[in-house]
Amino acid sequence: MKILNLVILSIILSAAAAQARPVSYPGGLTGMLMNNGDSNSVHVHYSPTAKMSVGYKGEYWRDSEYQIHAVQVNNLLKRWNKPESQANIYLKSGAGIAYSDFGAHENEIEPAFFTGFATDWEDRRRFISYENRFTHAGDIASGFEQSARVGYAPYEGDYGDLHTWLMLEVKHIPENADHFTVTPLVRFFKGVHLVEIGMNDNKEALFNWVIRY
């Protein structure tokens, strides 16, 4: 029973940062800058419909000193619209190249692929999400990561107000020395901007910025 509880807890809490939604409204353009203890990334995508987006994803993984440059496609597989809440399941996949200038892989380029699911549920005051991803980039990098978030909004703002969320993110990367990292963060959301600031238990900063038109 204890193991089952741990599995359930890990499913709830153990996965990747569900950032702002990976699919926008028809014609919507979104830019995301993500910086955390492991990597720096940029993702720019365009949504021709409310069910998919396509764009560029660039990542730099600092410890292993490799980059991924890929075309990423996000699909909204299922959405539940309720009077007071919304839930989503997305498939996020990308294909491109990985480049390394580190150690045995100096100046090496390999094809790179990644795919994973993301799911979230939120109402005006509560938020929960889970995300995972499998990455394969030949000899340069290969692995699985997952993360989860819970969030709480201390107040309900009107449309256009500054919205504030207090969140806790748990990230699990089995290949890392610290398999699990925990990041308390604050999300500010106003107009077309979403900013997240936090620091994990290794005292590494998190800074994310999303802009959506």
């Binding site: 009077p83 809440s85 919304q86 939120e122 959301f189």
Partner: peptide, 9 residues
Amino acid sequence: DVNGMVCDF
């Protein structure tokens, strides 16, 4: 009246 409208986005 709209279902699923929970945030500014």
